[in-house]
Amino acid sequence: MKTQPEGRAVMLGKFITENKATVRAAAKYFGISKSTVHKDVSERLRTDDPELYAKVKDILEINKQERHIRGGLATKRKYEAMTCHKKGRFYR
């Protein structure tokens, strides 16, 4: 994605608000790093579009509060896939 940082920040902000996406999801969708997404929506967007920045900030705060739940569910799925339910043994 070769875009000017200002335009990219607004595009990322709109994507996050429309999809209630995480920084990781936005980075994957646009093919850029998580740190670039974070810098764009936390610094550049603040000056480019303060109203959109406030919305994105609220969504990212919710994502931050829920991240431990998503991590626990991912770990649960991982170990359920590795376990043979009949014998309780782990297989890879």
Rank of each mutant, 00 (worst) to 15 (best):
K76N: 09
R8Y: 02
K57Y: 04
I16E: 05
R92D: 14
A9R: 05
N19Y: 08
T17Y: 07
T3P: 07
S33G: 07
K55D: 11
Y91S: 09
I69E: 13
A9W: 03
D58R: 08
T17K: 08
D49A: 14
A54Y: 08
R89G: 03
A26C: 04
E66T: 13
N19M: 07
I69M: 13
E51F: 04
D40C: 03
L12N: 06
E43G: 10
Q4Y: 14
K55P: 06
T75A: 14
R8M: 04
A27Y: 00
N63D: 07
E80W: 15
L73A: 07
P50M: 02
R89V: 13
L45M: 01
P5H: 03
D40M: 01
K76A: 13
K28Q: 09
A26D: 01
H85T: 15
K57D: 11
I16N: 09
R67K: 15
K78Q: 13
L60S: 01
E51T: 10
A74G: 15
G72A: 12
A74Q: 15
F90R: 15
A54L: 11
N19I: 02
V23R: 11
A54W: 05
N63T: 07
H38V: 03
D58S: 12
E61G: 09
V56I: 05
K20W: 06
K86T: 09
R77A: 11
N63G: 13
E80A: 15
E80P: 11
A9L: 05
D40T: 00
D40A: 06
R92L: 14
D40Q: 04
G72W: 10
T83D: 06
A9K: 05
F15K: 01
V37M: 07
I62Q: 12
V23H: 06
A81N: 10
K14D: 02
K14P: 00
K57Q: 12
T36Q: 10
A21M: 01
G71S: 12
G88Y: 06
H38N: 15
E18K: 11
H85A: 14
N63M: 08
A26R: 01
K2W: 10
S33K: 04
K39Q: 10
R92I: 11
L52I: 03
K2P: 10
A54G: 11
K64V: 03
K28R: 10
V10W: 05
I59H: 10
E51P: 04
Q65L: 12
R24Q: 10
A26H: 01
M1T: 06
